[in-house]
Simulated assay, not measured.
Amino acid sequence: MNPAEEVATGCRVLAAHGHSDLVWGHLSLRDPEGRGLWLKEAGYGYQEITPDRVVHIDRGGRLLSDQGRVHLEYPIHAEIMAARPDVGAIVHSHAESVVTFAATGLALLPLGHEGTLFWPPDVARFTATGDLIHTAELGKQLAEALGGRNVILLQQHGFVTVGPDVPTAVMMAVFLEKACRMQLAAAATGATYTWSGEAEALAKRERCYGPRQLADAWAHLVRISA
């Protein structure tokens, strides 16, 4: 599968699992030959992305492909990839459950299996602005706040997940949305709720989300999102 096909497949999965926000949100993949990155084209929703609606850009947002529109927030992808050589793919989404959860200030706790991917420690948070990440400087600040983590909440905005490849970055977004939705539902009952302690959470992270399990889960997501 070529880079444009990988991004298009990831966008289709995101669309099917709670991440559609009209034409906003984006997914990127580091170019395997070191020439910038491949990014969902601006002006289309996740569910509309086909390989010909994926653009190839450099770190400054300049088109390397023949045509297409570049998202204003391309610095999210360009600057995180510049700061994190281990990151091969990035998702930026405005999933409602995650935006709502971020506004509560609650720690994201492992009520179920999904939360163990993000705690301990608690998720990183970007609070410098709730506006768009539309400059290289803001992109660098976001990358610094993310540090070595796999997710960061952008309060009053959305979130970013990262991974070595498209399947990992996209699945982190899918799992994050579910974890936030579950905790919001539990908190809304007004009852006391429970979660795994640190030792159990770390053990479950390894047991539930090893390479084989994640590969099987990705294959399932692709099949049902076709």
Rank of each mutant, 00 (worst) to 15 (best):
A4P: 03
A4D: 08
E5N: 13
E5A: 15
E6D: 15
V13E: 00
S20F: 04
S20V: 12
D21H: 11
W24E: 11
G25Q: 02
G25H: 04
H26W: 00
L27Q: 12
R30V: 03
E33D: 14
E33I: 06
E33S: 13
R35I: 06
G36D: 04
L37H: 05
K40A: 11
K40D: 12
Y44A: 00
Y44L: 06
Q47V: 09
Q47K: 14
I49K: 02
T50K: 01
V54K: 07
H56F: 04
I57T: 00
G61L: 04
R62P: 00
L63D: 06
L64T: 03
L64V: 06
R69F: 07
V70A: 01
H71S: 07
I76Y: 04
H77M: 03
H77G: 02
M81T: 07
A83M: 04
A83L: 09
R84K: 06
P85N: 05
G88W: 01
H94C: 10
A95N: 09
A95H: 12
V98R: 00
V99T: 05
F101I: 08
F101K: 05
A102F: 07
A102E: 06
G105Y: 12
L106D: 15
A107L: 08
L108S: 01
E114N: 13
E114T: 14
T116R: 04
P120L: 05
P120S: 08
D122Q: 09
R125I: 07
A128H: 15
G130F: 05
D131W: 11
A136I: 15
G139Y: 09
Q141F: 08
L142S: 11
A145Y: 08
G147W: 10
N150Q: 13
V151F: 07
I152H: 12
L153R: 09
L154K: 14
Q156S: 15
H157V: 04
G158E: 04
G163V: 01
P164H: 11
A169K: 07
V170T: 07
M171A: 07
M172L: 11
F175Y: 14
F175A: 06
L176Q: 02
K178Q: 12
A179G: 10
C180P: 13
R181K: 13
R181A: 13
M182D: 13
M182S: 15
A185M: 13
A186W: 03
A187R: 10
A187E: 13
A188N: 09
G190K: 01
G190P: 05
T192I: 14
T194A: 13
S196G: 10
S196R: 14
A199G: 04
E200S: 13
L202Y: 02
L202A: 03
A203N: 12
A203I: 06
K204C: 11
K204S: 10
K204P: 04
R207M: 11
C208L: 14
R212F: 10
W218G: 01
W218R: 01
S225A: 15
A226N: 10
A226E: 12
